[in-house]
Structure formats: C-alpha cells, structure tokens
C-alpha cells in the first residue's frame, strides 16, 4: 500500500511545483515573446512577492490580504522597472536588455539580504489550510492542494483574458507579430508596461503562495530563475501553452527524478534544455517564424 501510493503523491508534488512554475513563467514567456526581452529579474520579482508577503503577514496577520497586496506591489515594481530602466536601454538591443535585468536580479537579491537578512524566514501557513486531507486512499497536505487550486483559477482567468478579450488578443497577436500590432496603431509601449505589471503581479502571487511551501530565502530567486529559463526554452520562447506543458514536464521530472535517480535529477533538466536549444531552438510548441 505504501509503495503504491507513492506514485500519485510524487505526481501531485510534481504538479504543484509545475503549476507554481507556470504562474511565474507565464509572465516571463509573454514578455519574451512580445518584447524579445529575457527578464533575468523575473525570479527576483517572485522572491519579492514572498518577502512582501512575509512582512505584510507580520504586520497584519492576514494571509488573504497578502495574496492581494503583495502581487499589486510587485506588479507596480515591474511597471516601474520597465518604464524607467528597461526602456532606456531598448535601443542597444536584446543582449543589453538581458544585461540590465541580470544587474537588477543581482541587486534585488543583495537588497533582500540587507533588509530581511541572509537566513531563511519561516512563513506560517494559515490555520484553515494547515494539516492534510485524505482522498483516494492517499494523505496530502491541504496547503499544497490550495496552491493547485489558486494556480488553476489563475490559469482559467488568464486563458479567458488572453483568448476571449480584445486586450488579450492584442497581446497574443503581439507575441507573434509585434511590428504588425504596432502598425495597427496600438500603443505598444503601454502594452509592454502593462505586461510587465501583470507578469510581475503573477510572479508576486506565486511568491506569496510559494513562500510557505518552498521556504522564503534570499537564494530562491536564483534557484527558480534557472528552472524558469528551462521552462521558457523547452516550451518555446514566447509560447504560453508551451510554457504550461514545459512547467508540468519540469515539475514531474524533478519530482520523479529525485525519487528514481537522485544523483542525476538536476542534470536531466539542463540536459533537456541543451538538447532543445540544439535540436529545436524554437522549443516544443514555439513558432519558428
């Protein structure tokens, strides 16, 4: 019984991490597809979400408040980042933009260490989500199911907005044909700025709900950014369905990899990324053009 139930449990673990990854990766891949900017600081935005949440929780004790306020703060941060920093170096090209976001990731990590300290912080899981539930013969922590639920709600909303509303269709169109959208007379810089806001807010939300689960610490940004790069590359630079598929794959690969081949689990991920870049640089679901 024990041995049998390990498979669905590992699967759920992989799913939870995969969905959390997707929450962060969705903004990253949309920004990349639309602007060609690979945002090195996207992991730092996720980390800021976790740390903001920690402080808000300390002052107010309201986890639900964190889930609203922290993403808004991170989203605002993303907007400021785009408007006052990234836009300045746009004319130097994408490699230069990558350098800037790398510098931002570096300095945000240092600032976080300065303000909140080098030590990992303990974030309490709200009482009503503590403990675990039993279903289908397995026992699973309630909080992780909550992460799954929130992620599912966010995807549903995201997909509805992207594929059913005018604003969303502009964004998806811009991902594949940015110059066409520009020609339609749409204020592209404004769309970029808002995209950074929304992408930042999603990363921030992932930070809030991921913080208690993945441990809030100053290294969390550089840990997740590598996974995010793998997701974005494997899924296809700029492809949202690709990012979803790749997030799921990476989550499961890590979950079962650690179980089956603990020595090689992390290497597998980079191997996958390298192989995709070599064999199919546009990614699994990416558009070649």
């Amino acid at each position: 019984m024990e041995a049998l139930s390990i498979i669905p449990v590992q699967f759920l673990h992989g799913l939870v991490y995969g969905m959390l990854l997707f929450l962060v990766a969705s903004g990253l891949t949309l920004i990349f597809g639309m602007m060609g900017v690979l945002n090195f600081a996207h992991g730092a935005l996720y980390m800021l979400g976790a740390y903001f949440s920690f402080s808000i929780l300390r002052w107010t004790g309201q986890f639900w408040l964190c889930m609203i306020v922290a993403p808004l703060l991170v989203g605002a941060f993303g907007i400021l980042m785009e408007r006052f920093l990234l836009r300045q170096v746009h004319r130097y090209g994408h490699a230069h933009e990558l350098l800037l976001t790398f510098g931002l990731a570096y300095i945000i990590e240092e600032l976080v260490k300065w303000i909140w300290g080098n030590q990992p912080l303990h974030v309490e899981i709200p009482a009503m989500l503590a403990g675990s539930v039993q279903f289908l013969g397995i026992t699973y922590p309630t909080y992780r199911l909550f992460i799954l639920l929130i992620s599912a709600i966010v995807f549903a909303v995201l997909f509805l907005i992207l594929y059913k509303t005018r604003a969303g269709i502009i964004v998806t169109a811009a991902v594949s044909r940015a110059e066409m959208v520009n020609a339609l007379g749409i204020n592209v810089p404004l769309v970029f700025m808002l995209l950074f806001g929304v992408g930042g807010a999603l990363a921030g939300l992932a930070g809030v709900i991921g913080g208690p689960y993945l441990i809030t610490n100053p290294g969390m940004a550089s840990t997740i950014i590598i996974d995010l790069f793998v997701v974005v590359v494997v899924g296809g630079l700029g492809s949202l369905p690709g990012a979803l598929l790749a997030s799921f794959l990476i989550g499961e690969l890590q979950s079962f990899g650690i179980l089956l081949i603990p020595q090689m689990a992390i290497a597998l991920e980079f191997l996958l990324m390298a192989v995709v870049l070599i064999v199919k640089p546009e990614g699994l679901l990416g558009d070649k053009a």
Partner: peptide, 28 residues
C-alpha cells in the same frame, strides 16, 4: 560545436545550460 550556432539570447541560454551541466557533474 553547439553554442556557436546560436546568437543573442539563445546563445546566452545554451552557455548557461552547459555551465550548469558541468557544475552539477562536479557537484555529484
């Protein structure tokens, strides 16, 4: 042989992936 086929962001990412592969190998 593999990385110099790529340019820009893709080059940056593949060099990073190879670096991580070598790093993980050294660690394990």
């Amino acid at each position: 042989v593999f990385v110099v086929r790529l340019r820009g962001v893709a080059f940056a990412l593949l060099t990073l992936a190879f670096n991580q592969l070598i790093y993980v190998t050294a660690e394990k």
